[in-house]
């Protein structure tokens, strides 16, 4: 959790716990305290006790009001400090899709625009600004350790900014119910030192490497000639589908199917053979490729680092 939010959370937890304990203590005492007075007649008037109770209740209400003002003020101040992020920094466009994330690194030069899926690489210590929108239904972008949620709404653009302080991999997940596979709509944010990030960026900009081994060549051939290429694109080949994740450097990614499986050649093969086994209802159809073809495609893709 980002710093300001974490301390705000602890503050709220502390205040609420104390309020709860005091209320329970009062209740416990009310139930258990010794009574001297006689209560045979429920309507017996007790003006003195009533006056005291009025005072006590009024005092508690006043105290409640004070606590609420403090809590509201704390909320407001934290909110302001979070909103006061400096500059835009790195600007990314994130488009939610059923059920994966399309991430576009914007640039003035068209050749430097980069489109990847489900993984966001960012430089450490710099502001990152996400422009969030959706291609279909409402999703919500949430990387718990970095910032709160922001919804991705069709035809609207929401902004979220954060700074990652430490290098590392941060897991995120879609947080707004978006249908069948809302559960498998994960993403990763990977923060590198600036130099490493730049290297990654340059590597990603390159088109896919042509395979040298025969089996992987076969894989490429199957990929581009069969149904795969209708949805997926691989820069540097004839595969130019746009409705599914771009796979130009898929082998360099950590997961398959928006966080459904860890990346490996075996897993790729299993995924291609029957994606619905792992992610029922996913928009990728089960293919009718032979076992051999699947192995070849998996080997080809795994090599696209």
């Amino acid at each position: 959790m980002a710093g300001g939010i974490e301390s705000l959370t602890w503050f709220f937890i502390a205040v609420c716990t104390v309020v709860w304990l005091l209320t329970m203590a009062a209740l416990g005492f009310a139930m258990l305290r010794r009574r001297r007075t006689d209560h045979a007649d429920p309507l017996k008037e007790r003006p003195r006790a009533d006056r005291l109770a009025t005072l006590a209740v009024s005092g508690l209400v006043a105290l409640t009001a004070v606590i609420l003002v403090v809590l509201t003020a704390a909320t407001f101040l934290t909110g302001k400090s979070l909103a006061g992020m400096q500059g835009e920094g790195l600007v990314l466009r994130v488009t939610g899709q059923q059920w994966w994330w399309q991430v576009t690194y914007e640039s003035d030069q068209p050749s430097r625009v980069l489109s990847v899926a489900n993984e966001i690489h960012v430089p450490v210590g710099e502001t990152v600004t996400l422009k969030l929108t959706s291609a279909d239904v409402i999703h919500s972008f949430w990387v718990p350790s970095l910032a709160g949620k922001t919804d991705l709404i069709p035809r609207r653009t929401n902004i979220q900014s954060f700074v990652v302080d430490r290098p590392g991999t941060y897991r995120g997940q879609c947080a707004e119910f978006c249908g069948f596979q809302h559960a498998h709509m994960g993403l990763l944010v990977i923060a590198h030192p600036r130099a490493e990030f730049d290297a990654w960026y340059e590597a990603q900009l390159k088109p896919a490497e042509r395979p040298s081994e025969a089996s992987r060549q076969r894989g490429e051939q199957v990929f581009t000639s069969r149904a795969c290429a209708m949805c997926h694109g691989i820069r540097g080949t004839s595969a130019a589908g746009r409705v599914a994740p771009d796979l130009t450097h898929v082998g360099s990614q950590q997961t398959i199917g928006a966080g459904t499986l860890p990346m490996s050649e075996d897993n790729l093969a299993r995924w291609i053979a029957d994606p619905h086994h792992f992610k029922p209802g996913v928009n990728m159809p089960k293919t009718d490729l032979s076992g051999e073809d699947i192995g070849a495609v998996a080997a080809y893709l795994a090599g696209l680092k």
């Binding site: 709220f12 609420c16 309020v19 709860w20 329970m24 609420l68 718990p144 709160g148 949620k149 947080a175």
Partner: peptide, 23 residues
């Protein structure tokens, strides 16, 4: 209920809610 009301007060706070919303 008092416990639930108090967690309600917690989620009424925008920055906190953005963390725990839909969880």
């Amino acid at each position: 209920f008092v416990a639930g009301g108090l967690t309600g007060v917690m989620v009424a706070s925008v920055p906190l809610d953005l963390q725990v919303h839909d969880t």
